[in-house]
């Protein structure tokens, strides 16, 4: 008995597929884009907005306690605070964010915009 041609082809195919898959994972980890902006008000999740290159412009009006309000806009893979009733406007000055792990914080309004995504982050937390 010899190794049949068919056996050899299957064997080689299996190895190629396995190596190919492995390489694909190495080169394009989590190639599916699933970035999500999380909007939290006073530590509670208020809403989530998917962020990707095809997402349409969305305007989110937040009505907050004590007649405060914020206008958060997302367009494609970016999100930012356009307007806020807070005194310091740190949130508006932060500008546009688009990468997982980035956040916009408005302390007076107790509001946080945070981007989550399956893109691997190298860090456990951030110092600032």
């Amino acid at each position: 008995m010899k190794i049949k041609k068919g056996d050899l082809i299957i064997l080689i195919l299996v190895i190629i597929v396995a190596i190919g898959w492995f390489l694909k994972d190495m080169m394009w980890p989590d190639s599916i884009n699933d970035k999500i902006a999380l909007i939290k008000v006073d530590s509670q999740i208020h809403s989530t907005i998917p962020l990707d290159a095809t997402a349409e412009r969305k305007e989110l009006h937040l009505e907050l306690p004590d007649n405060n309000h914020m206008l958060i806009i997302s367009e494609k893979d970016k999100i930012w605070v356009e307007e806020s009733s807070c005194p310091d406007k740190v949130c508006v000055k932060t500008g546009k964010i688009s990468n997982p792990g980035q956040s916009i914080v408005c302390l007076p309004n107790k509001t946080v915009v945070y981007i989550e995504g399956s893109e691997k982050t190298d860090i456990d937390d951030g110092a600032y």
């Binding site: 932060t94 500008g95 964010i97 990468n99 792990g101 980035q102 956040s103 916009i104 914080v105 981007i115 190298d122 860090i123 937390d125 951030g126 110092a127 600032y128």
Partner: peptide, 10 residues
């Protein structure tokens, strides 16, 4: 992560 002083938080 050590904050980039010229970029948004995070």
């Amino acid at each position: 992560g050590l904050q980039d002083p010229l970029e948004p938080r995070g």
